[in-house]
Write a protein that binds this DNA or RNA. Structure first.
Length: 219
DNA sequence: CTCTCGATGCGCT
DNA sequence: GCGCATCGAGAGA
C-alpha cells in the first residue's frame, strides 16, 4: 500500500467528523499539513494542505453566511465535516469544510495544497500548467481534483470519495498568518488575520513578501 | 518580473 | 442589474 510519498508505513487515519465540530480557528490551523484526498475513477489524488482561511461568526462580513441562510450557503449552517463547495466568477469552484456544531455557520476555505499522489491525473485536469500551478489556489485545486457542485454537501468520509487524512502537522514556527485574500467587508473583515499558511511554501497561493492589490499592510 | 483586465454563471438587492 | 472567498492572458518595465 501507499505508493504515494513512499515514506509513511503506518496506516493513515481519516479525520473523523468530530474533528470539525470545534472552534473554526483551531480547525483551520490544525488542517495545515493534513492530506486532502480525492478519489477519481479509483485513483487517489491527494496533497498536503498548505493554506487555509477561516470564515466564522455572525458578524464576519466576509463570510457568505453574513446575511443569513440562503439556498447557496445552507451547507455552512449544517453539520460539521461536510464539504461546502461554491461556484463563483462564472467559472470557478472553491472548497470549504464546514466547522462548528450544526446551526452555527462557519467553514474553512482550502486555498492551496501541495500535490502528493495522482500528479498525472492532476496534470490532465489542468492542461498546459506547470506543476507549481496545479493546486496553488482555491479554484486551481478544485480543478485539479475535479471538485465541483456535485461535491457540495457531501460528508468528508471515504465513502464520499472526498476526505482528509491525518498526516503531518507543521511546527508552530512554520505557520504564518495574514488577512484573508480577496474578501470584502468592513475594516475588521479586511484586517483580521484568519488566513493560515505554511511559511515559504512553494504552493502557497501568494508569495510572501509580495503584496496584494490596494490592500493594507499586515503581514 | 508586475499590473490590468476580461471571462462568464448565478445569487442576491 | 451588480458583484463575486478567482484565474490567466497580455502588455509594459
Amino acid at each position: 500500500m501507499d505508493r504515494g510519498d513512499g515514506h509513511q508505513v503506518a496506516q493513515r487515519t481519516v479525520l473523523p467528523l468530530e474533528f470539525y465540530a470545534r472552534d473554526t480557528l483551531i480547525v483551520a490551523r490544525e488542517l495545515l499539513g493534513q492530506r486532502l484526498v480525492r478519489m477519481i475513477e479509483g485513483v487517489r489524488l491527494s496533497g498536503h494542505i498548505v493554506e487555509v482561511e477561516a470564515y466564522q461568526g455572525e458578524d464576519d462580513l466576509a463570510s457568505h453566511a453574513a446575511r443569513g441562510k440562503t439556498l447557496r450557503n445552507a451547507v455552512m449552517f449544517g453539520p460539521p465535516g461536510h464539504a461546502y463547495v461554491y461556484f463563483t466568477y462564472g467559472m470557478h469552484y472553491c472548497l470549504n469544510v464546514v466547522t462548528e456544531p450544526e446551526g452555527t455557520p462557519a467553514a474553512v476555505l482550502i486555498r492551496a495544497i501541495a500535490p502528493i499522489e495522482g500528479l498525472e491525473m492532476m496534470r490532465q485536469n489542468r492542461p498546459g500548467q506547470p506543476d507549481e500551478e496545479l493546486t496553488n489556489g482555491p479554484a486551481k485545486l478544485c480543478q485539479a481534483l475535479r471538485i465541483d457542485r456535485t461535491c457540495n454537501g457531501v460528508p468528508l468520509t471515504e465513502a464520499s470519495g472526498l476526505f482528509i487524512e491525518r498526516d503531518q502537522m507543521p511546527a508552530i514556527e512554520q505557520i504564518a498568518t495574514s488577512p484573508r485574500i480577496g474578501v470584502r467587508g468592513d475594516e475588521r473583515a479586511l484586517t483580521i488575520p484568519w488566513r493560515f499558511f505554511i511559511r515559504d511554501h512553494p504552493y502557497v497561493s501568494l508569495k510572501e513578501g509580495r503584496r496584494r492589490k490596494p490592500t493594507m499592510d499586515s503581514w
